[in-house]
Each structure stands twice: as C-alpha cells, then as structure tokens.
Amino acid sequence: MALLEVTAATGISVVAGTAVTALLCIGPRQVSRAMTDVDDRLREIAPYLGAALALLAVKQITQGYRLRLSRALDWNITDELYALEGEFVASLQSLTPDATLEFFTVSYMVGFAFLLVAAPVTYFLSEGHGRRHLKELLVAYMLNYAVGTVCYTLFISYGPRNHLETVSGLMYRVYPQTQDLTAAVASNTNVFPSLHTSLSVAVLAVAWRSRRTHPRWTPAAAAVAAAVVFSTMYLGIHWLTDVVVGAALGVGSVSAAARIVDRAESGSAASRPGGEREKPTGRPGDD
C-alpha cells in the first residue's frame, strides 16, 4: 500500500507540475495549436521515442541478469570512493539545516521525475525548434541510461548512508515509505555514477541550448536540477564523486546527442525524393 500511495502522489504531482509548466513556459496558444497536429508531431519523433522506450524495456527485462552478473564480477569500488573524498557527505549533512529535509526529499522524489517528464512535454508542445530539442533530449536520455546500466553492472558501490556511520539515510529514516518506490526501480548498489545527477544535468544542458526560445523554462530547469543534484548527497544516497561523474555524463550525453541528431536528420533529408533538404533555420543551440 505504501508503494501505491507514494507512486500515486509522485505521479499526480508530476502531471500537475508539467501542465502548469507547459502553460507558463510556452503559453496556452502554443498548447492549443499543438493539439491540432499531434499526429504529425508524433510521427516526427516516433523513431526517437520508440528507441528510448525499447531501451528502457530491455533495461527492465535484463535487470535480474545484470544484478547477478554484477555480483559475480564482485568489483566493489566503495572503499575507493571513500578514499577519494572521505567525509565530504557527512560534512554536508551536518552543515545543512534539518528544516530543509522535506524540501530535498520532495526534490529527489518528485523534482527528478518532473524534470524527466516536463522537459519532453514542453518541447513536444512547442513551435520552432522544440521538436529538435526533444530529439536531442531523448537521445541524451538513452545515452545516460546506456552508460549507467554498464557502470551499474560492472561496479558494485554502496552510497554513504550504507557505508559510513557518520552519514544518515535521512529520507528513508524520516519517510520510510519512499524506500518502497526507489527499491522497485533500482538496487542499492546503483550508485556510480548518479543518474539522478546525469539526467538532471542533461535536461538543464538542453534547456540552456533552448534558452532563447524557452526563456522561462531554462531558469525553472536550473532551479529544480540544482535541488535534485544537492539532494542526492544531502540525503546520503550518493558520493560527491558520483555527482561529479554524473554531471560530466549529463553534459557529454547532450553534446553527443546533438551530433547524433544532426547526422540522423541529415540522412533523413538526403533520403527524400530528389535529395531535397529543408532550408536551414539556424543552429538549434543558438536559437
């Protein structure tokens, strides 16, 4: 019952936040216009969306096998992470006011899911380069999950809350029901790198590329992403090293995604009858 309640509360919050974000960031007129050509928009992004969903399905199907393989490899890097940064997370917890616990718990549980959903919905409903940014974001999601899956299979790593007596698993201690949801989607050894960080940074990186056409979305994404990244350490779930590597993965995935989409779109244009290409409308990152 706790899992159902937490999932429902998270889902309702994300849907409501996404709807408000779309109305505030792109306006009711663009949302209304988008409803008139949903089929065309879906057809345009179908290859990217289909590939992303297929990757998630494969990841879910192979989860048990990958966990067994990881245990068989038994490459535990937790001690190395602690040797690298020591008591950083413990110090961070001691310096952060206890009154912020609820805010960062909501950031970790709801803010992260909000970023993953609100960003693609906002771009899907947008005019101009919106769908180009959506394609980049979907490819970046795939790259993050692909790299994360490989790392989680190769490396066993326990977060600070499971390794240090000086670090408390604040969220799980005060809100134990949240552990049901997190345990349902990930193992407690899925620590290096932090996909909460990498995916949040990827959303922010695409938001930065779209800052001229989506000026209201960029600061909103930045604020939520910053809260999510900080929460992963404050709640004792990730090491600073996980976060640093995750941030690098997030930025790198968007850079690679932009190149991948460039090539895919160029190939698509070249395959049209007569080899016709659309007239350039400017670099998506500069719009």
Rank of each mutant, 00 (worst) to 15 (best):
Y234T: 01
A183C: 08
N144S: 06
M35N: 04
Q93V: 06
A34I: 02
L240V: 07
N162D: 08
T18F: 04
M171Y: 00
S91C: 09
S91D: 15
E276H: 10
G275N: 10
R173F: 04
G250P: 01
A140T: 04
N144P: 04
H196R: 14
S13Y: 05
L73Y: 06
D98T: 11
E87D: 14
T10V: 12
N162P: 02
Y172S: 08
A207G: 14
V174G: 02
A118W: 00
V117L: 15
R259S: 14
L84N: 06
A46H: 12
S32L: 14
F155N: 00
R161C: 06
T10L: 11
D98L: 13
R259N: 07
A51T: 10
A146F: 13
N188L: 09
R277D: 00
L116E: 04
N144E: 10
L115T: 00
S198M: 08
A119M: 15
S13D: 04
A220W: 05
L69F: 07
S91P: 03
I26K: 04
G130F: 02
Y48A: 07
M1L: 10
P160H: 09
G17A: 14
V31M: 14
A2S: 13
T10C: 06
S91A: 10
F112K: 03
E165M: 09
H196K: 12
G252L: 03
A119L: 08
T100M: 13
R29G: 01
K59V: 12
A183T: 12
R212G: 01
T105N: 05
V254G: 02
N190K: 09
A90N: 05
A19T: 15
V174F: 09
N76Q: 07
V167C: 02
I61K: 15
S200Y: 01
E136K: 14
V191I: 11
V251A: 14
L199R: 12
I12T: 11
H129E: 05
G11E: 08
T18S: 12
V174A: 13
T62V: 15
P215A: 01
R277T: 03
Y152H: 14
Q177E: 14
A264M: 13
N188V: 14
I45L: 11
S231T: 09
E5Q: 15
V139I: 15
G130D: 02
V229S: 01
V191W: 02
V121H: 03
L53V: 08
A205Q: 07
Y123R: 05
T7I: 08
A220G: 02
H238Y: 03
M142S: 09
P215T: 02
V185R: 15
A83F: 04
F124T: 00
G275Y: 04
D180S: 10
S70H: 05
G27E: 01
S268I: 02
G17F: 04
Q177L: 12
V139N: 03
M109G: 00
D79H: 02
S210N: 11
W217Q: 07
A184R: 13
A227P: 00
T241Q: 04
T100V: 13
L235A: 04
A220V: 06
L249E: 07
A90V: 02
